[in-house]
Write a protein that binds this DNA or RNA. Sequence first.
DNA 1: CTTGACAATAAGTTTTGACTTATATAATAT
DNA 2: ATATTATATAAGTCAAAACTTATTGTCAAG
Lengths: 115, 115
Amino acid sequence: MDAASNLNAAFSALADPTRRAILARLAKGEATVMELAAPFEMTQPAISQHLKVLEGAGLVVRRVDGTKRPRRLAKAGVEAMDQWLAMLRKALEKNYDRLDEVLASMEKQKRGEKR
Amino acid sequence: MDAASNLNAAFSALADPTRRAILARLAKGEATVMELAAPFEMTQPAISQHLKVLEGAGLVVRRVDGTKRPRRLAKAGVEAMDQWLAMLRKALEKNYDRLDEVLASMEKQKRGEKR
DNA sequence: CTTGACAATAAGTTTTGACTTATATAATAT
DNA sequence: ATATTATATAAGTCAAAACTTATTGTCAAG
């Protein structure tokens, strides 16, 4: 479970639109498998499998409540991706070519911010 | 090219460690295909194919210089992912009441393993 | 103790992805 | 023109992903 494999798992988890939709739903609060499955045309096992992927990526955690297994968002995975993307973002801010630079600073001035 | 398919492409592009390494290299500045291929044991066509994926995701752009086709980072894709992740991050910050965590750890302890 | 609801797992199918080798194109140098 | 360098495309292979249906495990209610 090194950092790279976490990123593999996390980014590839988000590559699937169903899983992004599940996360978006969970961003509103805890939900059971059935609740998560409802909006989709997929079967319940399919959703369970997606959830397994999301858990493996550290993006979601499971709780036990009777026969239910409500899920909620987990910080771990989101933070890992966030940090990696921050690296790219930083590089983009630093390396942009002249044109980008001019355009970017013009944009920023509109908001009263200066780099 | 709607927003969702951009996200599909962008996240799935980042799911591959070779492609993340390519992006990390490009974060240091423009590079040709051969330069990008050098650190890997893969063949040149494999790298060209990875670059095609990255371009499709709007993460990388191509320039023409003689027979060379140097690549550099592009903002578009990074920003799209960034915004999506921001949504999750926000949800996590919002839901980060200690109550959730306390409940979670209580559940965990209560799990007394009865068969 | 049986039943029904909730969820996970198994096994099979079909797409999709990441490579390979071989070949093609395009600009540059000889 | 021909060769060389840089890259792209084509075609095929193999593994992994995303589903499906069928089945199983587990709890809680009657």
